[in-house]
Structure formats: C-alpha cells, structure tokens
C-alpha cells in the first residue's frame, strides 16, 4: 500500500499535469479563433477563383491547346500524394486520421500497380508515413517556424508541385487534409489538385453563357497563369482548414485530458484521506490499548 507521502507526491504531480493541459487547451482555443477567421477570410477569393476558372475552363476542355495542368498528362500511373498534417502532436487522433486516409489511398494505388510518392507538409504525418512507406517520401515541408500561414507559404509549396509536374515527375496529385467542421469534428478529406478538377458551374453561370469574353492577353496565357495560382489557392485553403482543425482537435484532446486529470485527483485524494484516517485510528487504538494495559 502506498504511503501518505507517496500519495501526496502523486497528487501534486497530477495537479501539475492538469495545469499544463488546461493551459494548452486555452491556448488552442485562442489560436482556434484566429485560425477560423483566417480560414473564413480566405474563402471569398477561392470562391471567385473557382467561378472564373470554371468559366474559362469549360471553353478550353477538350481543346488541344489546353494546358497540361488542366488536361493532365493523359496517363494515370504515377501519383503524388500531398499530405497536410500538423507539426506538433498532442492533438488527439488528428495526425493519424489524415495519415491513415493517405495510407489507405496509397495502398490501393500500389495494389493497382501504380507508383506512389509523398510530399508531406507538416512533420507529424511524415513521421507516420515514413515507417510504412520507406523511401517514398519525396520531401517534408515544415511550417513550424511560420506563425501565421499565409498565401506566400502556400505559393511556395504550389510552386514545388507545379515544377515537379513540369519536369514530368508525376501524373496525378492528390491532397489530403483535414476539413474543419466544428471543434469536435474534423473530416479527413482527399482532393485532386493536378490536373485541376473544375467544379461544375452553378446557376449563376447561365447569365454568362451568352456573353463572349474578351481576353487580355490571350485565353491560353491567362489559363497558364491562372492554373498554377489555383493550385496555390487550393493549398492555402487546405493549410488554413488544417490549421483550424489542428487547434480544434487539440482543444478537445486537452479538454479530455484535463477532465481525466480531475477524475484522477479526486480518486487519489479519496485514497489519501482514507489512508490518513486509517493511520489516525490505528495510532489511537495503540494509545488506548497501551493505557488499558497499565
């Protein structure tokens, strides 16, 4: 049986842990709010970009002039998986659920006799995948030093992907990231980014159907600029969603940890008090029986 001193130490240590998890939860909550606003602020651009792109691309589809980023290489053999995870742990199942989705996808592709490469954004996903797919990790990009993820970060990664594509290193790129739904629910999502998937235009497009666009400079040149930018925007969206999800996941993980620590403290205090009382009773019995013996 644990002595009183052991129990006291134990309680103190659990209390200290609880303080840390509580603080982490509060930090995550503050960061979450910021990340959510950033994700919301980036949405209008992505939406309008999609509209412009679907306008342009619907006319270009099937045309032999269509850039490779839109039309694809005509093959479906080599796949690049872009896995967006966090750089830090202690956020519940956040990293492993994205890695699992990417892993299942990769296994399916491998089973079909295709080639797979990974580009990891965030070290945690790379740590998991490196064990399962040794030698397939192309590179790991860490955003640990960046405090607020911005367009320039996304652009740098997008440039890498587009360059790799330009050098004919892969045929299809798919991005895995966590979509932020709410604090308790983040949905691991897969999205194809190269060749670009053009969303079907909504009703608003009817308005433009009849209109003939003028292009300055030419249609192809605009598409050439627009498509790499689209990759960057999709990445930015993923990075921001992922950042918000990470904080959300951490917040609920830390909330659980704080609660568990609370339960543990309660249990330990109970045991401590029982032991203390038992000891007092024992001492009293010793004194009384000693007195009686006289």
């Amino acid at each position: 049986m644990a002595s009183l001193k052991d129990l006291r130490n134990r309680i103190a240590s659990v209390k200290a842990t609880q303080k840390i998890t509580k603080a982490m939860q509060m930090v995550a909550a503050a960061k979450l709010r910021r990340a959510e606003t950033a994700a919301a602020a980036a949405r209008p651009y992505a939406e309008r970009m999609e509209r412009v792109l679907s306008n342009l691309a619907s006319g270009m589809k099937g045309s032999p002039l269509a850039p490779k980023l839109l039309a694809g290489t005509g093959e479906d053999k080599r796949h690049l998986l872009v896995v967006v995870t966090a750089d830090r742990g202690l956020c519940g199942g956040f990293n492993s659920s994205i890695a699992r989705l990417a892993r299942d996808h990769a296994r399916r592709l491998l089973a079909d006799g295709k080639e797979v490469q990974f580009l990891c954004v965030g070290r945690k996903g790379a740590d998991i995948l490196r064990r399962q797919f040794p030698g397939k990790i192309d590179d790991v990009i860490s955003l640990r030093e960046t405090k607020n993820v911005g367009f320039s970060n996304a652009q740098a990664i997008a440039e890498r992907i587009v360059d790799l594509y330009g050098e004919d290193k892969f045929d299809v790129a798919t991005m895995f990231f966590s979509k932020f739904k709410s604090v308790v629910s983040q949905i691991p999502t897969a999205q194809q980014i190269v060749p670009a998937e053009i969303p079907e235009g909504d009703e608003g497009e009817d308005l433009l159907k009849g209109a003939v666009y003028e292009y300055e400079p030419s249609e192809e040149e605009i598409l050439d600029e627009l498509l790499p930018r689209n990759v960057a925007i999709q990445l930015l969206k993923a990075l921001l969603e992922s950042a918000a999800s990470e904080q959300g996941a951490r917040m609920s993980a830390m909330d659980n940890a704080t609660r568990n620590a609370g339960d543990m403290i309660k249990r330990l205090s109970l045991e401590y008090n029982r032991t203390r009382q038992a000891q007092i009773t024992k001492e009293l019995i010793e004194i009384i029986s000693g007195a009686e013996a006289l």
């Binding site: 666009y213 292009y215 300055e216 605009i222």
Partner: peptide, 19 residues
Amino acid sequence: PGAEGEFGVLAHHAPLLST
C-alpha cells in the same frame, strides 16, 4: 492596371478577363 495597359471600367462594360 491591366497587363497590356490601364483600362477603366464603367457599368455595362463588355465581359473581359485580363491579367
């Protein structure tokens, strides 16, 4: 500031896409 020169846009401008 369009890629091929500045241009002004007023209401009812013809559809145009420019870098």
